[in-house]
Structures are given as structure tokens and as C-alpha cells.
Amino acid sequence: MAEAKQGNRWTMVIDLDKCTACQACVIACHAENNVPTVGPEQINMGRAQHWLRIERYWQGEYPDLRARYIPVLCQQCQHAPCEPVCPVFASMHSDAENINVQVYNRCVGTRYCGNNCPYLARVFNWFDPYFPEPLNEQLNPDVTVRYRGVMEKCTFCIQRIHAGADRAALEGRPLRDGDVVPACAQVCPTDAIVLGNLADEHSRIHEFVKSKRAFALLEDLGTEPAVIYLKGGESHVS
């Protein structure tokens, strides 16, 4: 609920003017979160399992045609459409972190949340996950390997949020910028992706969010996304 603001307020800012669509974030996300690769056949069926994907679209007519792209991931809505429809609370709002979480071991696989997500950020494990050599050697022990029949989606790298909070607690100080860097932000060569905590007054996320270039995806649906895009003027790629 947007009204009850307690705990952290994780917010991601993606600067589309900086993004070069290099897809490094997509790869990093796969590696960090044990996202299985599904193979060309399944990709052709539209079953790519990316938690974060770069959507490309065209602007203008032929001679004056520009490629545009936007990284789309779970928007961590504060009024998430996926939450009320889940019959078992597998998709739920975390009051502690104020993000939307997916509980894999609770999920029964009705896929209703996937239908109801206007951003199509949710992906389903159609089969048992398969990690061909040598990917099986690099699974992240901090993240569940999902089994067949459950929904999954971007978690804002919640394992890193917990690890950051744990480190801060060990050092006896509050969370601050830099403690939590999700995999996509870590690898972004242009620093286009920034995750910050709105509850932290000193976080640099505040100045991004107040920017005149800020907008949210499908804002009119009233889902109150926690992902803010920045876009202004002409992009450097045309």
C-alpha cells in the first residue's frame, strides 16, 4: 500500500539517454539470479525467461527512422496488479522493503499474475530448469533455483539487498548508497541503472526522481511503479 510507508523504499532509476542497449544487464541478471536459458526452440515460442529485457521499437518513417529501446523489468509496483489475484499469496507486497516479491515455494502456478501484469514482467518455468555446461557451475547459492511450474520475476536482487543490510548491521551503521547494487546496475557500462532507497534522505536517488525527465511506464494505470525512467530530448543513437 502506498499510504503505509515504513521500511525501505527501493527505487530504480533507468536513464534512457544513457542506455546503449548493450544487453550486459540482461546477461548479468541471468547469471546473478540463476535464470535458466531455454534454448532457441523455446525462445521461438516466446518463452524467453529474461527477468530484464531490452524492448526495441522504431520511431518515424523509413528515411528518418530511429531505433529506440527501453529496458523493461518488474516495475515493483506499489499498487501491484499481480498481488490481489494470487490465490495463495505467492505474489505479495513486502512491507519491509516496499517491493513486490514472488515466493517460489508458495507458488502453485495459476499464472494469473502473469496475465494481470501490464508490463509482462513475469516469466513462467514451463519445464524444469536446465543449465548446460558450464552454467551449472556458476549457480548463485543465495538464490533459489526454481523448479517447473512456478512464476518468477525481477526481485531487485533482494539477495543483495539482504547482504547489504547484513553488512551494514555487522558494521553497526544504517544502510547507505552503495551498500546495495543489483547485478544489472553493477555491470552497466554507462551507469544508466541506479538503485536507491527513497527512505534514505542522503541517497542520490532523490535528485533523479525529481528530474524533469522522469516518467513511469504505463503511468495512467495507477500501478505506482518503483522503476523511474529518465528520458529527454534526442537520444544519442539515431
Binding site: 505479495m92 513486502s94 512491507d95 519491509a96 522493503e97 516479491v101 515455494n105 533459489t144 526481485t155
Partner: peptide, 12 residues
Amino acid sequence: VTKLISCETCHY
């Protein structure tokens, strides 16, 4: 308690 009984504290 809010954080301690929240699903994502242990399951992610």
C-alpha cells in the same frame, strides 16, 4: 515483526 514475518525475509 513486519520484517520478520515477511515472506521475502527467508524466501527468494
